[in-house]
């Protein structure tokens, strides 16, 4: 629900980092906070518990500057990873313009990933939003860990794709990030669309900006 404020000449877009607990959502935001020029970002707000687990959300505004007369800003939010904070997770999705799902690549977190993905679909649909039509990317985090699952397995579980209904979209669309892979392709006679994915080690910043850049461009395109 990007709001274009013609009176103050501002456009604000809301990007939400979603995913299982301890997957690295807050770490993504912390890296952005540390690396973006101080003049281009606001204060980072964390509503966290004493043990630094996200209780309600983390919030970081990032300023893109004035574009064609409009001060353009991205509001980055994370949601709490733990299932028992679902009420707050749902609230943060209100008015969302784009979603990053931060998956934990470790094999033993696969179930938590799948549960969080299902929960994301459910919470989006409760707001009346359709995840297959809004800007959405997946980040496979913690790729450096020895027990990280192969990308193919993660893709099969978390990004299997959905059937393409619109005839004009029924043509192969290569994935610009991964050679030989496709975002839209025909599999056994059925056209399937997947979302873009990014590998990351958020703790040292690897893949953090690739993910953010991809999502923010999708969100901006959606404004046009």
């Amino acid at each position: 629900m990007s709001m274009i404020n013609y009176a103050s000449r501002e456009i604000n877009c809301k990007l939400v980092y979603y995913g299982p607990g301890l997957g690295g959502k807050t770490t993504n935001l912390e890296h952005v906070y540390q690396k973006v020029a101080p003049g281009s970002r606001g204060k980072m707000i964390s509503l966290a518990t004493e043990t630094e687990r996200t209780l309600f959300f983390d919030f970081l505004p990032v300023d893109l500057g004035t574009i064609r007369g409009f001060k353009t800003r991205f509001h980055l939010y994370t949601v709490p990873g733990q299932v028992y904070y679902n009420a707050s997770r749902k609230l943060i999705l209100k008015g969302v313009d784009g979603v990053v799902f931060v998956a934990d690549s470790q094999i033993d977190r696969m179930e938590a990933n799948i549960e969080a993905m299902q929960n994301l679909y459910d919470n989006m649909s409760e707001h009346g939003y359709d995840l297959t039509t809004i800007p959405f990317v997946i980040q496979y985090n913690k790729r450096d860990l020895p027990n990280a699952a192969p990308i193919n397995d993660l893709q099969a579980s978390l990004n299997p794709g959905w059937p393409v209904e619109e005839p004009s979209k029924m043509r192969p669309m290569p994935d610009p990030q991964h050679e030989g892979e496709f975002l839209i392709q025909q599999i056994e006679g059925q056209w399937i669309e997947r979302v873009g994915y990014y590998e990351a080690v958020a703790l040292n910043g690897e893949g953090v900006f690739d993910t953010l850049k991809a999502l923010s461009k999708l969100v901006i395109k959606n404004l046009g």
């Binding site: 500057g65 574009i67 923010s216 404004l223």
Partner: peptide, 21 residues
Amino acid sequence: APRVETDFVDDAEDEIDRLFG
């Protein structure tokens, strides 16, 4: 829904590249 002009999208994309690498 409100829309922005095409030039806005192009300029914003350049700015995203500059800010986020």
